[in-house]
Amino acid sequence: MEQAGLSTVTLSPIPDLTASVGAPRVAAIGYPLGRSFGQPGDAEGQSAVLRAALRTVETAQRPGAVIDLPFDWPETPSQVKASSTANPPIATLLKRRPWLLPKLLSRNPPN
């Protein structure tokens, strides 16, 4: 995208991963996955995150800049993890065949 003349910013809840793939500008957000802009119904909070993420396009000065956004999530990590309902097929498969986990770690699927 940058090569096509577009200026990008990534709002990332896992900034270490986003930075590792060479994202030009990263706005790091300390929120759980699946709600990077904030809580449902919290228009004000969502706007604040959106505004801060976009401003990063103006403030980031060098390729690979990671800028931490100053927002705190109201729940603890254990509250967030306890309430998650996601159940990916790969997790079910690995419960049955745990010896395949290295294939996932190396992103090298079995044939």
Binding site: M1, E2, Q3, G5, L6, S7, T8, P13, I14, P15, D16, L17, S20, V21, G22, A23, P24, A28, G30, Y31, P32, L33, P63, G64, W73, P77, V80, K81, A91, L101, L104, L105, S106, R107
Partner: peptide, 28 residues
């Protein structure tokens, strides 16, 4: 980056980060 991730996902993320080569970062 790992605060809200479960242990397996955190391990995946760390491994995947380690696999990424250093590269030139495009910039417009």
């Amino acid at each position: 980056s790992y605060r809200f991730l479960g242990p397996v996902t955190a391990k995946l993320v760390r491994r995947w980060i380690d696999r990424e080569p250093l590269r030139e970062i495009p910039w417009t």
